[in-house]
Computed example of a mutant assay.
Amino acid sequence: MNSPLETRSLSLKREGNAVLDKVSFTVAQGEIFALLGGNGAGKSSTLLTFLGFLEPSGGEVLVNGQSVASDVTAARNAIAYLPEATSLYGHMTAYENLDYFLDLAGRSAGVDELNAAFDRVALPIEARSRRLQSYSKGMRQKTAIALALLRETPILLLDEPTSGLDPVAIDEFHDLVKALAQGGQTILMVTHDVYGACQVADRVGLLRRGKLVGSFSAENGQRIDTETVHAAFAEREAA
C-alpha cells in the first residue's frame, strides 16, 4: 500500500551545492514524522520538494503514491503547508481570512462550519472577529490549521511549528497535532527542537548536512527517549 508521503533516494542541488543526498523515508497515514536537524540540514528544502517548489536533482518525491513531478497540482491539493511565518493577512479577521483563502481554493463555508473548525483548534470565540495583527503566533497557527481542516487536506506539512511559542502554546499545539493524526491526517514536521520532536512524533529522522543519518521510533505507546535523540543530535552536529 502506498504511503501518503515518500521520498526515494531524494537528492537536491541548489546553486551547485548539495542540499539533500539520497534521502529516503515514508510517512504513513495517521503518523507524525519529525525531521530533526540543525540549520542548513535540508529540512525546509525537503518540504518544498513535496510541494513542487524545488525540483530534485535525483530520486523521487511521491504524494499519495504519485510522483510530484508528474502532477504537482494533485500533490498541492492534498497538502496543507504551515510555514514558520504563517501567511495570513493581518488586516483581516479570522473569519475573513478563511473566507478569502477558501474562495481561492474554490470552496466556501458557512459561519457554523467556520466556527466548528475554530472550535476544533480551540481558537477563542472572542478572537475570531478580531484582526490577525493582534494575534499571537500561536493563535495565527490555529487559524491556519482551521483553514487546513476546512480544505480537508489529508496531509499537513509543518515547518518549525513551535518556534517562538511559549511553553503553554507549545503544549496546546502538540495536543492539536496529535488529535489531527488520530483523526487520520498524515503529518510531516521539520524542526531543530529535539524535545518537541520527541514529545509529539511517532518517529524522528535525524538529518545532517542533507543526509538522513538516524531514525528513532516510539515503542509500545511510549514517547521517544529525548536523551537518546539529543545525544545523537549533538554527536552528529559536532562531527
Rank of each mutant, 00 (worst) to 15 (best):
L212E: 14
I79W: 04
A231F: 05
L157K: 00
D103E: 15
L149R: 01
R14M: 10
D112V: 05
D171V: 13
L98I: 15
N2D: 13
I145R: 04
L165H: 02
V63M: 03
A117C: 13
I187R: 01
F53Q: 07
T86K: 04
H230M: 15
F233D: 03
T153C: 10
A122E: 15
L114N: 06
C198N: 03
D193T: 01
E31Y: 04
S44N: 02
A218S: 14
A238M: 05
R130K: 14
A146T: 06
C198P: 01
G40L: 07
E235N: 11
F53I: 02
E55T: 13
G210I: 00
T26L: 02
D175T: 09
V19E: 02
D119P: 11
Y135V: 00
E6M: 11
A75E: 10
A75W: 07
A239W: 00
S108P: 09
N97L: 14
L156K: 04
I155Q: 05
V229E: 03
G65V: 00
Q222C: 10
L156H: 02
P56V: 06
L20H: 10
L150P: 08
A105Y: 14
K142P: 12
Q199V: 09
A80M: 07
E96D: 05
N64F: 07
A239L: 13
I125R: 12
S24H: 09
P154C: 07
A232G: 10
L88P: 09
V63H: 04
